[in-house]
Amino acid sequence: MNKPLILIVEDDAPIRNLISVTLETHEYRYIAAGNAGNAILEAASHNPDIMLLDLGLPDMDGVEVIRKIRSWSSMPIIVISARSDDTDKIEALDAGADDYLTKPFSVDELLARLRVTLRRLNQMRADNPENPVFVNGSLKIDFASGCAYISGEELHLTPIEYKLLCLLARNCGKVLTHKYITQQIWGASWENNVASLRVFMATLRKKLEPSPDAAALIQTHVGIGYRMIRITDN
């Protein structure tokens, strides 16, 4: 398979350099852009596999870049945010970003996120969107019959838990914000729904516990949302 092509959008030269060097030493191809205008141009002309996008750009708000890209492409976008405030990450995720990294990040973290996203990308390309069965590690969901199994055992889920599991599975690898999830499940994002979500997610996890990879299956992003991780077979 070809080496994946990553588009780095970062206005700060030392960090752009750091990322480029890291990618180069780990067998990725990359192109780099220093502002939003170039980023959109590069994205359109090279059609990269993944975009690494810094939210604080000089010429345009990062979230605006995501919206523009999303209007014609579903390429995975990982946002890089320097602000410790969660709101900009949530805004970026709601606008269509797939994942986020907070500065300062370690090289390991960057590579881990890229791997997760690449797996998601490969799955997206391989999956038939109408595939009635979802398999991830020991978890299996049969959408047609509305049943979920863990290591072959059927799970007894409440309707809301099942809806949650399906929602996470369909967006496997992508960080889903609380707002997005509550709107999908209850149709509205009220405070009480967000609180309920915590409880349902905790009970759902408890039910998945028999699986050896349960702890890693659903990630909690405190203050932001949840994500189902694609479990690798090795």
Binding site: D86, T87, V194, A195, R198, V199, A202, T220, V222
Partner: peptide
Amino acid sequence: LNMTTELMDDMITE
């Protein structure tokens, strides 16, 4: 303060 309802154990894990 950005108050939300959270699971204590989630925050410890983080």
